[in-house]
Design a protein around this nucleic acid. Sequence first.
DNA 1: CAGTTTTTTATTGTTGAACAATATTGTATA
DNA 2: TATACAATATTGTTCAACAATAAAAAACTG
Lengths: 222, 222
Amino acid sequence: MALADLDEQSDQPLSEKVALRIREMLIQGRFAPGEKLSEHQVAGQFGISRNTLREVFRLLTSQGLLTHIPNRGVFVVSPNESAVMDIYRVRWVIQKGAIQAASRGHPALARMKALTHEADAARSSSDWQQVGTVNMEFHRAMVSLCDSPRLSLCFDLVLAELRLVFRLLAYTAHLHEPYIALNISLLQLIEEEKTADAIDFLEAYLLKSERSVLAAMQRKKG
Amino acid sequence: MALADLDEQSDQPLSEKVALRIREMLIQGRFAPGEKLSEHQVAGQFGISRNTLREVFRLLTSQGLLTHIPNRGVFVVSPNESAVMDIYRVRWVIQKGAIQAASRGHPALARMKALTHEADAARSSSDWQQVGTVNMEFHRAMVSLCDSPRLSLCFDLVLAELRLVFRLLAYTAHLHEPYIALNISLLQLIEEEKTADAIDFLEAYLLKSERSVLAAMQRKKG
DNA sequence: CAGTTTTTTATTGTTGAACAATATTGTATA
DNA sequence: TATACAATATTGTTCAACAATAAAAAACTG
């Protein structure tokens, strides 16, 4: 993926290339949530001009990764509990729609299956960060069952924000490990077209996930 | 609303003010779909610098109203049939979720009710453009039943694009008139918490609407 | 000394000019 | 007519400057 990215980047405008890089860095937790990003400093860091950087900031702000406060500057978003709850509301609506849109033999199903195996492999090597990444890809694939670019885009934004939360909580085993098995069960229900069961399963799944995230956030604070 | 907007704008950055203005102009059909927006020309038109305008373009591009092609420029998006179908896919997923999220006494229900009356008034004065606007507001209010800022934002983007399509087709009576009554029926089903019926109704509603839009697009071309 | 006002400083907001890189147009040649 | 090349216009990017705003520091007052 890294190679493909670089190829894509090669003839893209500088602002979009840098936007991609900063986006990656954000997701990798290279900036602290709530941290202020100074135009002068960041522009120097990436060797680009302030004007170009401001375009980058506009891009990332509308992707929900940065917050722009007029005359104050740009800050890394720091999702709070209410943001997490909202994110899970979005997931619930969209992923439920994805289950109902699933059709037999849809290519996304094959991709989901492959991703469950990738998750297994990552667990074997105790690469919990990779487990988290693969888990996200699994759900993105699930949403692509809708065959809706706009819905996928919306979901991507929400997932990127959630990734920030995970980073904040550090990648620990218990945060992602349980979902490897759950993903397999969920995929099976979808493949067997047990739509109602799959939806019930998804609801329990998301509730469990949301609760564990919120609990971890509480622990982090309190 | 215009007054409130102006107030809000007053201490916003220039780029966001202009973005709002251009957004309005786009929705009002002041630019032709597919039209190229030259940086030099538009910057002159609004009396701002190219650098600032480029930030505006980044904003509007990520709102889905403009398309940016590197080294070629920025163009007004011209949604085609496949875009319309995708927009309705999104509507189906999100609005179905809204119905299921509806709770008795939710403020959005009151707003929806008020909007059905506004639609009636607009019909009485044969202001079909207003009928279209109010109709959109009705559906936005419906989505706000989810109490999810992120879902509402996503829905807004899709609706703005759909508005472009309507503008392209011109505001004729038949395009919106039938939905005044359907909105009332739909609201009633939701208020009575006949969830399953409401969902069935919504499906037929969206299908009918999608078909009429696609047919009008065909007519426009052929 | 605490709290408030003023001054200073740093940062963002915005501009205009300049140049490089790319796309488009026009022209000449085969 | 079609291709190759030159001329032109547009976008991409940078820089330096200044205005407007917010943050920090200093001075003032009770």
